[in-house]
Nucleic acid binder design. Sequence first.
DNA 1: TCAAAAGTGTTGCCGATACACCCATGG
DNA 2: CCATGGGTGTATCGGCAACACTTTTGA
Lengths: 231, 231
Amino acid sequence: MAHGPERVALAVSTVIFALRPHPTTRRLALWIPLVRRIRAPHQGTWALPGGPLATDEGLAASAARNLRETTRLAPRYLEQLYAFGGLDRAPSAAERTVSVVYWALVRPEEADASVATVNVKWFVADEHPELAFDHALIVEYALWRLRNKVEYSRIAAAFLGETFTLAELRGVHEAVLQRTLDPANFRRQMESSGRLVATDEFRTGGRHRPARLYRHDESIHLADNGPLTGL
Amino acid sequence: MAHGPERVALAVSTVIFALRPHPTTRRLALWIPLVRRIRAPHQGTWALPGGPLATDEGLAASAARNLRETTRLAPRYLEQLYAFGGLDRAPSAAERTVSVVYWALVRPEEADASVATVNVKWFVADEHPELAFDHALIVEYALWRLRNKVEYSRIAAAFLGETFTLAELRGVHEAVLQRTLDPANFRRQMESSGRLVATDEFRTGGRHRPARLYRHDESIHLADNGPLTGL
DNA sequence: TCAAAAGTGTTGCCGATACACCCATGG
DNA sequence: CCATGGGTGTATCGGCAACACTTTTGA
């Protein structure tokens, strides 16, 4: 009779989200970078960036390092998604692996050199190719969490700069939620959330009234490290 | 210079909740079983039940097995809480451990033999003694999740039998949330949630009008195995 | 017939939505 | 002066909390 592997390997993977225009519709959409597997199993198919946990780094640090190595970007937001450890995650011949998966938000404007690496390619998040292992399920779950969380937290800020107009912030929400939002009601929602601080600067340039710039209340921490940071 | 351990150990622990009367107030309260550590580090202090992940079992299965071994009970509800993997979880001399923690709800009425084991003792959840490692933080986080989730899911059912009155169900909610709830509004909330099915039986015996018995809609699954079971 | 809990009705408040409407700017 | 988005006002709707009230039992 067959029996399991001798030890359980521990890996950390990350679902990395960025906002860029959709190639056909030109409207903002969520993108994720995938890595082409260079070894069996699933050699040649796309997979989430990730790797084994180093013995001298924490789980979140491992995710951040992997993110940096894959995209040359620093995460603007990083949160644990789930630990996947089913027995059916890989072909029976493969080593038994438990993956702690994180999801992250990045701002890709700065360094589009992120596309440089050959084996890394960005895809529109809900138009990705077939993925290795259970990674398609993981991406779907991460998308669900992101779309959920954008409605009651300030994570949308992670996609924007230091200051931004309400229209820009609304654009992020609309891209994530994939539906249009009423500008008037969105404004009131944000104003009453207590998370925004109005500056006395304005963004001019459009052929319309200049829009006031806002920043986020810095006394509220963005990162959600689960039970570790307050919550 | 010192360096980290050579490998990372993977353990699974579980925060197990049961409802029983508080020893002094006699009102329903949340209890958790703790295990006295029989070896260093933290020898002699109380800790969450748990142990290393077997190579031939999934994460949730490991939590369920551990729960059964600790309490002789089967979980009525089981959900992953978080994966803890910081570098500061244990004294530097100890082995580096990543713990995948689950939380569970059980119904202790059936087998109070659960208290039999010498090194296992039940405590009121928010009156527990000092705990080993970061387990106090974990218990707090699990309590937060439970109290959150009881408001929008049907997990309270896990503390009750097949059928129950609305007063019994309300009692569970009140014990978890630690506040009284308006019976009239609670009734309407439950009725409009679509999760309850009225039976044509009644609970008699009190010196008051008999209460209708309800059961939960079986077409809705109780377990939340995260992304695995369709959420 | 009375206490106590089951169950129903009613009201007022608050937040969210829909949408009409003014404001300020570039062209 | 007009098109465009910025920004404000307002009516409506629905859910929820508070609480008065009726019903039905055991003692």
